[in-house]
Design a protein around this nucleic acid. Structure first.
Lengths: 249, 249
DNA sequence: GCGCCGCCTTGATCGAGATCGACGCGCCGT
DNA sequence: ACGGCGCGTCGATCTCGATCAAGGCGGCGC
């Protein structure tokens, strides 16, 4: 994700867009795309760069084309919790709200297909297809958020790490059309800090539990931040979720 | 909420419905309401009754008219986490999914305005107004879920209890149009178990922290499960959220 | 009235994860 | 080559909330 094509190499026609059939524009007809192309712009951010601050006036909305961005909330004394991840095709910005509700930070190099908020909303209002698509995407996000609530509220540190790895492995397998027979590899792009923020842990606990999983033989470290999972089922068991036998990609 | 009018007393015309302007039908035109009235039915559940099991085929969808229902997830070994609350006007059932994703249990006596799923979806497909309304409701739920993620991941037991009370107090104040000057009362309908499931705690910790808040003078117990908050600002401080001075209802 | 049962409270102890502190390793700029 | 810095690891200790255990209180049926 972090080392895909550079922004300059992105095909800027909607027809050829990498996320054409998964993003907010998935249900659009050719006519709609003409409209979208008229008002869209591309914008990239460096890893660690802040894309928006919570409370800030939201001028832009848009879809992630590639890379990963993090949504997080912060308590007055600095405790931070990640509340969402924006992956390619995910949408940033909420119709009917004028400010950002969360801090948005680039986790990797990330590129957005952006629209001026007002123009986009005008277009949405007269294009129910976009609204329908947004509804489905929002429902999916709500499901993810609720799954994460279970993790945050009830899972042990070990289960949290295993759950994260299961998700990353599945995502990577889906992306690369790889069949997760036995033996599965995926890259660990994010830092311990990002994992800790995501899982509601400290970085020390994240580090210790990853070591514990390695010592227990559930994972191995490869070169270049690759994680190798010999028996995916054992990782799923360690994650606390049942779904026991069936290895879904 | 638990002791409002009985189902039999509910006015069954959409025009006079208590949630007419807040529910999924809020944007509907009179013509749409005729359609809805044709396919809707009312259904009530007793406190503690299970409305749906996770994984079960979803036949019905609908809005809460009155009462409260809880959505929760369960881990294989029985650990449970509440992932959502359905209050009057909230919608149960997800378009495009054939099974329930969570257990749904009545927290109080609860009455739904329900539709056969297939019929409702057919209607939605040709009524973008309903879709737009669902989108906004889903976005609100997503915000609540994310706020809850911050609570589950980063707040202390004490802050969790205080946060819950702040929310309940605000909700009650909003419902009764009461101005939260100094001195604010609200009823504590739910059990310690429900609070524990919601907050990611055990019932013992819930009990102890409520006692601690009482001993610290932040809350007092009245008759009939009423909680009295003398200085709302102190409760907000204890909740960990800033928003320090401004007392919003 | 009496006893039971569900819900709640409180105490004692335990343990997972936070906190504090030290250090290792790789990368980058000079 | 060297030093500095960001990131990760690991050990020691502490602490908050879980766990285990013992009642209390109130409503309800008999």
């Amino acid at each position: 994700m972090a080392n895909g094509p550079s922004p300059a190499m992105i095909d800027t026609t909607c027809e050829n867009c990498m996320i054409r059939h998964r993003a907010v524009c998935a249900l659009c007809e050719p006519d709609d795309l003409v409209e979208l192309e008229r008002i869209k712009t591309y914008r990239s951010y460096r890893p660690g760069e802040t894309i928006a601050w919570a409370g800030e006036r939201a001028q832009l909305v848009g879809s992630v084309i590639e890379g990963v961005a993090m949504l997080s909330s912060t308590l007055a004394d600095g405790r931070r919790q990640m509340v969402g991840l924006l992956l390619p095709s995910d949408f940033l910005g909420r119709p009917g709200r004028t400010t950002h509700a969360y801090d948005v930070v680039a986790a990797t190099e990330v590129t957005f297909c952006m629209f001026r908020k007002a123009e986009f909303e005008r277009l949405v209002t007269r294009t129910p297809r976009i609204e329908r698509r947004m509804l489905h995407m929002t429902l999916d996000e709500l499901d993810s958020a609720r799954e994460w609530m279970l993790l945050l509220g009830r899972k042990t540190a070990r289960e949290k790490i295993a759950s994260l790895f299961v998700i990353m492995a599945r995502r990577d397998a889906a992306l690369n059309q790889a069949r997760p027979r036995d033996g599965l590899r995926f890259p660990l792009y994010i830092t311990r800090e990002a994992m800790a923020d995501y899982l509601g842990l400290t970085i020390e606990t994240v580090s210790r539990q990853i070591s514990a999983l390695r010592k227990a033989g559930l994972i191995e470290f490869g070169a270049n931040r690759m994680i190798h999972v010999a028996e995916f089922v054992r990782l799923i068991d360690a994650s606390g979720d049942d779904a026991g036998g069936g290895v879904r990609a």
